[in-house]
């Protein structure tokens, strides 16, 4: 069982539902997001188009972040997910400098969602799940996976551009979609062997 994801960039409409669903599901503090969507443009007028690249953590099989972590807080699980144990993290941030996909974020401080006002009830509750001074990253929504669901970003996408599943199973929807659409990881030349594949774009 090796979790992986396919994102079809031809279908992605750049709405950021995934980014907000990630915040919603994971309850990350203000300014911290486990998911990002790159929006940029390609071409020259009149042949110019908006381009989108949603990026969860790539969950590299040869993860640079796991290599540099001095306390072993960042581990590569057998199911392919790269996870951070917040109780072991010392907050040295070398994983952030090591990650070429900018997938990790350090919790400098707990800011408030609503600036210039108080922290909301929601924040107060969900902050208990985080520790200031540690690094966080996308974990493919481990809690949801344990409940048999797919990741929040996959579930919410209005254009259904994501497929999530078992890369080790050649008949799974994601494995077949990767083959059918000729999907490749982003910046493959870095040779970190990501588990997230992109088609089209």
């Amino acid at each position: 069982m090796r979790y992986g994801m396919l994102i079809d960039l031809n279908k992605c409409v750049g709405c950021n539902a995934c980014t907000v669903a990630c915040r919603n599901n994971n309850g990350t503090p203000a300014g911290v997001s486990l998911h990002k969507l790159l929006k940029y443009e390609a071409g020259v007028y009149p042949n110019a188009k908006m381009k989108f690249r949603p990026m969860p953590c790539m969950h590299c099989q040869d993860a640079p972040c796991a290599k540099v972590c001095p306390t072993g807080a960042t581990v590569q699980r057998p199911d392919g997910i790269v996870d951070v144990d917040a109780n072991k993290c010392i907050g040295c941030r070398s994983c952030i400098t090591a990650c070429p996909y900018d997938s990790r974020q350090f919790i400098w401080d707990f800011g408030d969602y609503y600036e210039q006002a108080q922290p909301t009830r929601l924040e107060q509750k969900r902050r208990l799940e985080f520790q200031k001074g540690t690094v966080v990253k996308c974990t493919f929504c481990l809690t949801r996976l344990q409940q048999g669901k797919v990741t929040a970003c996959t579930a919410t996408c209005p254009s259904q551009c994501r497929v999530f599943g078992d890369l080790d199973d050649p008949n799974s929807e994601v494995s077949r979609a990767i083959v059918d659409k000729g999907a490749r990881p982003f910046r493959e030349e870095l040779e970190t062997h990501p588990s997230v594949y992109y088609a089209g774009g």
């Binding site: 972590c69 306390t71 072993g72 072991k88």
Partner: peptide, 8 residues
């Protein structure tokens, strides 16, 4: 930790 791959 015994992560001797880490420069730190």
């Amino acid at each position: 930790s015994k992560n001797f791959k880490s420069p730190l």
